[in-house]
Computed example of a mutant assay.
Amino acid sequence: MRKTTLFGAVFGAAVLLFSPWLMASTNWDMTPGVTDISQQVHGLHRTILYICIVIGLGVFGLMFWSILHHRKSKGAVAANFHESTTVEIIWTVVPFIILIGMAIPATKVLVAMSDTSESTMTIRVTGSQWKWHYEYLTYNEDKDVGVSFLSALSTPREQYERQGKGWDASNIPDFEKHPNYLIEVDKPLVIPTGQKVRFLITSDDVIHAWWVPDFALKRDAVPGFINEVWANVPVGQEGIYRGRCAELCGKDHAFMPIVVEAKSPADFKVWLADAKVQAIADAKAAAASVDYKFPSLAAAMTEGEGVYVARCAACHQVNGAGLPPMFPALKGSKMAIEKSGLQDHINIILHGKNAMPAWSSLLTAREMAAVTTYERNAWGNDTGDLVQPSEFAK
């Protein structure tokens, strides 16, 4: 019995001592993260893990010891008794105490994770198949932020779908060796370090989930609901942090990455000033695009193809075949080939329909006119319709 007890004690001590090293060396552990709240989550995880290890060693150690020392070959005779108030009290009270001991630190961390008070900045994060829309709503140091943009996967669609005229099999080894293949975006979310940033997370179509492991952030983006979460990246931890949509949100779920760039307060102010200048320039360009006229059908088609591949091909496919019934085909559809369907075509692009978002706030009149022209003349539709931006301005 002494040898068995000694072996169990040594084995248990070894597990407790070496489990952190084992997890760290084999990437089995959770991400410690960079924020204070992520460190708290990691510490809570370790605490609960150690409690579970001790319980497991105690339960299985007692079970194996009982099997070994009360086996038939040693002449053990089973005790003949029924009920034991003492045992029942012990196996009720002890787990209760353990659960309370686990619940107290867990509750503290959960409360801290939900406390968005005294935040310096508020950003609305909207999930949309299959991209993220970021809107800087408030900032204590700048009362007129006025910055918003879409963030989408920057890897060309023809590469990861292995189709389209840009597809070249000889390029596979090159772009797939890139360390950020399929996890890079065209416009990352930028936040300042040393400041508490509050995120309002929602969706305009299906359920998504905004997840950045290094911040210990993961909240569902549910249409019609606002979920709150926050992060405060310490000064000195500037850099790029990556995440992804953690909800199975549809066909391109795997191609909806999240990239957050944490900048020092001084660098963030420079970035914000440049972003505001760009936003003003974009607004002026959008206003000017109303009066623009495409010189020819070919010019509109060329511009429209770029808009279509970037914004529409995820749902309606590069070849216009769609994914019925959720995403109808544009190739050969009555709306896209009949003259009487032109107004409906314009209205759907402007205001959206079902899972399709309203593009009026995301695209200029010129871009919407170009993509409408493309959809009405590509894939054999050949209506000859040249839609001008003024049609959308109406």
Rank of each mutant, 00 (worst) to 15 (best):
M1T: 10
L6T: 11
L16F: 03
M23W: 10
S25E: 11
T26I: 04
N27W: 09
W28N: 08
T31V: 12
P32N: 02
G33Y: 05
T35M: 07
D36F: 07
Q40D: 15
V41E: 11
R46G: 01
G56R: 00
L62P: 01
W65Q: 12
A78K: 10
F81I: 12
T86G: 11
T86I: 14
V93I: 14
I100V: 15
I104M: 12
P105W: 08
P105H: 10
A106M: 13
K108S: 13
S117W: 07
S128C: 10
Q129P: 00
Y134P: 00
Y134S: 03
N140V: 10
K143R: 12
L153I: 08
Y160S: 04
K165N: 10
I172G: 06
F175A: 05
F175C: 03
E176P: 05
N180R: 14
Y181G: 04
L182P: 03
I183Q: 14
V185Q: 05
T193L: 06
F199L: 13
I201K: 00
T202N: 05
D205F: 02
A216H: 02
V222S: 05
N232Q: 14
N232Y: 06
G236Y: 04
G239F: 03
R242S: 09
R244I: 13
R244G: 11
C245G: 09
A246T: 06
L248Q: 14
K251H: 12
H253K: 09
V260C: 07
P265Y: 08
A266Q: 13
F268A: 01
A283E: 15
K284Y: 09
A287I: 06
V290K: 12
G306A: 09
C312T: 03
A314I: 01
H316N: 01
N319F: 00
I337H: 07
N347T: 14
N347S: 13
G352E: 05
K353M: 14
N354T: 10
A355G: 07
A358V: 02
W359Q: 05
L362E: 10
L363M: 11
E367F: 01
M368Q: 08
A370S: 12
D382F: 08
D385V: 13
A393S: 15
